[in-house]
Every structure is written in structure tokens, then in C-alpha cells.
């Protein structure tokens, strides 16, 4: 696995040249594609880079570390130690299946990839990402529950309705009308998907109305008192 990643990366550089490769990385949000190699090298030789273990493939992570230091590039996201880093290098040779409304990119790579590792997401937020940022329509695809991508999931009903309509009638206006109506359909449960903010601080977490940490909800008086300020 790791070797294939390195191989494909090297292949991509060979095909498109190093400059293009770097620019692509930059376009994808890796803003720190600056020669931080000295720092990185130091980390590497200190053994600090061995910490990022929460990545899918630790072995390839290390190799990537070597590779990136060799290529004088790095995806420095400020959380080098103890956090998984995402690296552009996976995406080489993969196809972008879709982008959701939050800007998360969904990749798929079939062929010689190990089964179960052929779909992945590249989060829009490079510095603070979390698995709960994946909206529900893409969740199924990403976790191999379904083969319909998120875009298809939201359009599936529309398509189904349109197919049925096409059989029965040929009125084009009606198609458009139906499409518009289906787009107007309220979102499920009526609220937008939100990422899970647990552990991000008290101000982000929901507190019930009697909770000590809920600001502005502590008044339980059942009467309104006379305000002496009104006195002349």
C-alpha cells in the first residue's frame, strides 16, 4: 500500500512536473506548502513524526513523512503531534466522486487499492476536521453502506419521479414543476447538518434550559416584579 502511494506520487510528479504537483497541493488547501522542511526534518529525526498514529495507515504515514521531507513539502496543519495529517499524496490517481455542500471532497480509487480503503474524504477544513463533518447523504457512500453518492441520494427521488412521469406524460413544463417542487421539499428534520462539537468547549455544547452552564436561562420566576426604576 505504502509503496504504491509513493509510486503513484512519483509517477504524478514525473508526468506533470514538480511545480504542477505542488500547485495542485496548494489549490487543495494545503496553505503551508512552504519549505518547512528544516522543522519537519527535525521532528522526523527526533522521532516526533512517529506519533501520528491515528491515521489509517501508519506505515505509509512514515513513508510519506520521509517523502515529504525529501520533496521539501509538508502538509503542516498546526497539529503535527498526536493528530493525523492528511496528505495530498493519497489522491494521486483517484477520482473525485463529488463535493458536498461543506466543501468536503470525496475520492474513490478502484483497481489495485485494498478493499475497504478505496473511498475516502478530504475535509474542507484542513486544520480542524472531524468525522462528523460528513453530512448524512454522503455518510452512506463513504462507509460503503450504499453505492449511491451523496449527490445521487439527494437527486434519487427526483429522478424516480421524473422517470415515472416520462412514461406517463411528455409535458416538459410539468417536469420542471415537479423538479422545483421536490427541491422545495424541506430538509429532513428541518435542520442543517451540524458537526459534533463535543469537547470543543462549553460554549459550543447544548445545555438544557435549567443547566447551570446555559446562559440566560436561569430565571425560573413565575411572576414579573414591579420595577422601581419607573418611579418618577
Amino acid at each position: 500500500m505504502a509503496t504504491t502511494v509513493v509510486k503513484s506520487a512519483l509517477q504524478a510528479i514525473r508526468e506533470r512536473g514538480l511545480r504542477t504537483f505542488l500547485r495542485e497541493l496548494k489549490d487543495d488547501g494545503f496553505t503551508f506548502v512552504v519549505p518547512l522542511s528544516s522543522f519537519l526534518l527535525k521532528c522526523f529525526f527526533d522521532g516526533n513524526l512517529l506519533f501520528p498514529v491515528s491515521a489509517l495507515e501508519p506505515s505509509s504515514e512514515i513513508i510519506l513523512g520521509i517523502l515529504s521531507s525529501l520533496l521539501f513539502i509538508s502538509s503542516f496543519d498546526g497539529n503535527l503531534i498526536g493528530w493525523s495529517r492528511q496528505t495530498k499524496i493519497h489522491n494521486i490517481g483517484a477520482t473525485v466522486v463529488g463535493v458536498d455542500k461543506f466543501g468536503n471532497k470525496y475520492y474513490e480509487k478502484l483497481g489495485d487499492t485494498q478493499a475497504g480503503r478505496h473511498r475516502w474524504v478530504e475535509y474542507a477544513k484542513k486544520d480542524r476536521y472531524d468525522a462528523s463533518q460528513v453530512p448524512p447523504e454522503w455518510h452512506g457512500w463513504l462507509h460503503f453502506i450504499t453505492d449511491h453518492t451523496g449527490d445521487e441520494a439527494s437527486l434519487a427521488l427526483t429522478k424516480f419521479a421524473l422517470q415515472n412521469l416520462r412514461l406517463s406524460t411528455c409535458l416538459k413544463d410539468l417536469h420542471i414543476l415537479v423538479l422545483q417542487l421536490l427541491m422545495l421539499k424541506p430538509k429532513r428534520y428541518g435542520v442543517e447538518h451540524k458537526e459534533n462539537l463535543s469537547g470543543k468547549g462549553n460554549e459550543f455544547i447544548y445545555h438544557s434550559k435549567g443547566h447551570a452552564l446555559n446562559p440566560g436561562q436561569r430565571d425560573w420566576t413565575r411572576y414579573q416584579s414591579w420595577q422601581p426604576t419607573k418611579a418618577e
Binding site: 413565575r222 411572576y223 422601581p228 418611579a231
Partner: peptide, 20 residues
């Protein structure tokens, strides 16, 4: 009306004419 405009604390009008 039993829940509005209720007097709930003893108050004294200070020298500035305000209730405390």
C-alpha cells in the same frame, strides 16, 4: 394580574428618589 407588577422585596426610597 397576580403574576405581574408584583412587589417582591422591601424597598426604601433613597435620597436620590430611587427605590432600593
Amino acid at each position: 394580574g397576580l403574576k405581574r407588577q408584583r412587589l417582591n422585596d422591601p424597598m426604601i426610597r433613597g435620597a436620590d428618589g430611587r427605590f432600593k
